[in-house]
Design a protein around this nucleic acid. Sequence first.
RNA 1: GCCCUGGUAGCUCAGCUGGAUAGAGCGUCCCCCUCCUAAGGGGAAGGCCAGAGGUUCGAAUCCUCUUCAGGGCACCA
Length: 581
Amino acid sequence: MKKQIQELLLQSLAVLESKEIIPASNDLVIKIENSRGSKHGDFASNIAMTLAKTAKTNPRQLAQNIIDKLPESDVLERVEIAGPGFINFFLKQNAHQATVIDILNKGHQYGDSIVGANTPTLIEFVSANPTGPLHIGHGRGAAYGAAVASLLKKTGFDVSCEYYINDAGRQMDILAISVWLRYLQHSGTDVPFAENAYQGDYITDIAVKLHNEHAGEFILPAESFIALFKEEDPELKIDSLIKYCIDNLGEENYRIVFDAGLDSILITIKNDLIGFGVEFDNWFSERSLVESNTVKQCIAKLIKNDWVYEKDGAQWFRSSKLGDEKDRVLIRENGQATYFASDVAYHLNKVERGFEKIIDVWGADHHGYIARVKASMQALALSPEKLEILLVQFATLYRGKEKLQMSTRSGEFITLKELQDEVGKDAARFFYIMRKSEQHLDFDLELAKSESNDNPVYYIQYAHARICSVFRQLAEKGIKYQQAVALKDVSSLNEPHEIKLLATLARYPDVIENAAITYEPHQLAYYLRDLANDFHTYYNANQFLVEDDVVRNARLTLIAATKQVIRNGLSLLSVSSPEVM
RNA sequence: GCCCUGGUAGCUCAGCUGGAUAGAGCGUCCCCCUCCUAAGGGGAAGGCCAGAGGUUCGAAUCCUCUUCAGGGCACCA
């Protein structure tokens, strides 16, 4: 509808340009907005006000000129000038009514758009280190990333979802050591546990399983390495344990212990995500980048173009030349590549796979990282503007007034699974995206669980269930309803609440498109709340199952359309649309 | 110190990227089931949009400064 009005305005302006009432311009942006109150019509444009200056005339006069040259249209009832020079458009009733037909014809495709033009798009999210189960903090990234991906798919982007597995760094070695120590303890070896290792019970579970499959194979005499525990610095202690373990267990055996931890945790993560309604097209291993020498090749490329220098035995990337605060280390003094080096290679790989739009969803604590990754892309001539980094603030969990704390190392945290078991997938998914992503989120468990109108998820779902209920009543009463027939006459939809509901339904495609291109799924959440509200209001004000066949049928098409849109919207957020509540 | 975020009703937050009287939910107060699910609806009260300048026809929105809150500034990931 907006596009139609835009087109009309464009034609009018073309006439005015030809008469030199306004100067010719080729980059004219015509903004049409949904009016807030109905007295300002259905749509409004401020075009006269923005053009008034260059046209050297006053806005109201110009608005009148524009209106005079507006072509005939069968959707417009009338057009008015208001305020300082707004042009308000009032739609004909049947233009409103037509949305019902549009929605029911398109069904689950209502709201789809092609703005994405099949752009190959990669969205990487969650990517939590596989050192433990996903917790509450990861949940937000998962819900947000998945919602953005769904929105982009709906708007015509060719989307691929990816999880980057950090299976190559020191954290993973610490995990391996954690498993190994628990394994020894389980085998009856008397060894202490390192305070910096992962404390969670899941480590023991993995160790027990490893023991069942490889009893005795990875035991080393405690007295041969017990001295390592005397080291005061916990970081140095764990590093020496890692080294000892690799040297004495042998690469091959160490790898078995390592993989036991990695594989087990990865399976848990995958299952938790599936349960949460989040699925990935690809699980990308960091180790694969190292083993395929991509990281080395990448650094070689940087060296060749003089982006790297040596200082204090380390290899530095000249990121400060490309907008970063300082230069960054690629290869440490000890010869190990940094996480950043892998990331440079990873982004090179993303571009080489042909993605035009590359989206990374990161925790807000990584924001200092943006400049260096963009710098690396620039150095490799990879057009950094392809990369879009979306930051997600952490969620703070509350149980009523009580704030719940957590930390991964100590093993004291609430897992995503536990959250889901407690509040359910629907509430969890919805609450996570309800707030703008860069905003801190207070997640109240009590509220998410409450089956009351405090809870927006139930409010929206209830609207859906109520509509289903109406159709059940219809069947019980033996009233005939055929959608195709009913759609032939919807001209009775003239009640104020009906017009309001129709207008909200008509907004849906705009909401989807805007939510997608701004990466703001919360817009959809708010919209659905509005829609549910309009429906509930209508429900209370008007009876649907009335005597008059034509009126009843028309109303039923309207609520069927409402049901369809609620369903479409909720499914994008992976929230169910229950038929009964 | 430098760099990000944010400050809007008592509370939690929107505000369509510069528009018309600033909007929801919760909480408070009043009203509505002989009627398709009251997990609902209607109404009232509640605001110096943190503060000060600036940009222009017009600012919660854009720019500068101040202030407060959270986060980030590794040869960790």
